[in-house]
Design a protein around this nucleic acid. Structure first.
Length: 352
DNA sequence: AAGACGGGGCC
DNA sequence: GGCCCAGTCTT
């Protein structure tokens, strides 16, 4: 074990740690919720969701008993919705298999859905004091710079080597504090760009600082260009209601309610896409004009397309994944965020 | 080992 | 407009 980093990091952390709400609790459930919610998510973005989520589901028993619709609704707008569904499943497993107590070891936490190496390490160390590392993107960056580690540290042997180094650095006394300190340093001092090396408690240990090139680390593999996907959606209105379809369990935006439609491509033109999306809905649908356009950039793709006004005759038939949603329903249903914004603009002050 | 999976903030 | 973020799961 090497405590040189911990010896510098822990005093620095006691002085400079930010006062964040999820750090004020010792409740393992709250810590677990925070860690899942912050996966690949900036703290500033996730914090309001953490407050609302804990107010809506104060205990793991409350979460396990909640309908999935409420859980997804609490997650609406945050992204990576599989996290919400997995967290819900994890809560059910905790109630069913662990007597309603969050498992207290890395190995048991790791078995829960949606809990990987990072989250299991974070909860085990922070909530239960187990001496295990928690290597997130911040820790990767700090350790890459201190030890001048090359290669893509998010996967493969490079990843395993890094986790081994991190494990060796965790002090037995307060592993959770050390892990948080490492992440805090990465977030506030050892930043991706323009790191504040003069303020860093590790600078005399840091290989990248010694070289004068901290921003060279970690290496980020190049990514292919963002593809543009053509899409077509249907806006069908009846009275004050809008036709929504619940997206399938797997894949993109799983389980959220959306305008009917999808990707245009290959031999499927917009008309074919809309017919497929609206199949089985009443007596027929015909396009009645254009309601607006969609432009939405995901992390690695861009959706561009048209929202068509569509007239539907007859009832919805037997499709349980379709509903005419009124204003009250829109407050209750978890909705694809950019479709929600589209609908809000539609009824906004700039009505054309 | 490689892709899929969101969204917002920042340069 | 591209990069990055308190990662995990599937294939």
């Amino acid at each position: 074990m090497d405590t040189a980093l911990a010896d510098r990091l822990l005093p620095w952390y006691r002085e400079h740690r930010r006062d964040l709400s999820f750090r004020r609790t010792r409740d393992p459930y709250a810590i677990l919720v925070a860690e899942v919610l912050l996966q690949r998510t900036r703290i500033a973005s996730g914090l309001p969701y953490f407050e609302r989520f804990m107010a809506a589901f104060p205990t793991v028993v409350d979460l396990a008993a909640a309908p999935e619709e409420r859980v997804l609704k609490a997650w609406e707008g945050l992204g990576f919705y599989g996290r919400a569904r997995n967290l819900h499943r994890a809560a059910k497993a905790v109630v069913a298999d662990h007597g309603g107590r969050i498992p207290g070891t890395f190995a048991r936490l790791r078995e829960l859905p949606g809990i990987g190496d990072y989250t299991a390490g974070a909860v085990a160390s922070i909530a239960f004091g187990e001496r295990v590392p928690a290597v997130d993107g911040n820790a990767i960056r700090v350790l890459a710079r201190v030890f001048r580690l090359r290669g893509d540290l998010t996967r493969g042997d490079a990843r395993r080597g890094l986790v081994g180094i991190a494990a060796d650095l965790v002090p037995p006394g307060e592993p959770g504090t050390f892990n948080q300190a490492l992440m805090e340093l990465g977030a506030t001092v050892c930043r991706p760009r323009a790191p504040r090396c003069p303020e860093c408690p590790l600078r005399d240990l840091c290989g990248a600082f010694r070289d004068g090139q901290p921003e060279r680390y970690p290496e980020i593999p190049p990514r292919p260009p963002t593809p543009v996907i053509r899409v077509a959606f249907a806006l069908a209105q009846r009275g004050g209601n809008v036709l929504l379809i619940r997206r399938p369990e797997g894949g993109l935006l799983a389980g959220l309610w959306a305008l009917p439609g999808g990707e245009v491509g290959g031999k499927r033109d917009a008309g074919a896409v809309l017919r497929a999306a609206l199949s089985g809905l009443g007596g027929g649908a015909r396009v009645d004009g254009i309601a607006g356009r969609v432009e939405h950039t995901f992390s690695h793709r861009r959706w561009e397309g048209v929202v068509y006004r569509v007239r539907i005759s007859g009832p919805l038939g037997s499709r349980e994944d379709a509903t005419w949603a009124g204003p009250a329903d829109l407050e209750r249903l978890p909705l694809v965020p950019f479709h929600r914004r589209f609908l809000e603009r539609l009824h906004g002050p700039e009505e054309h």
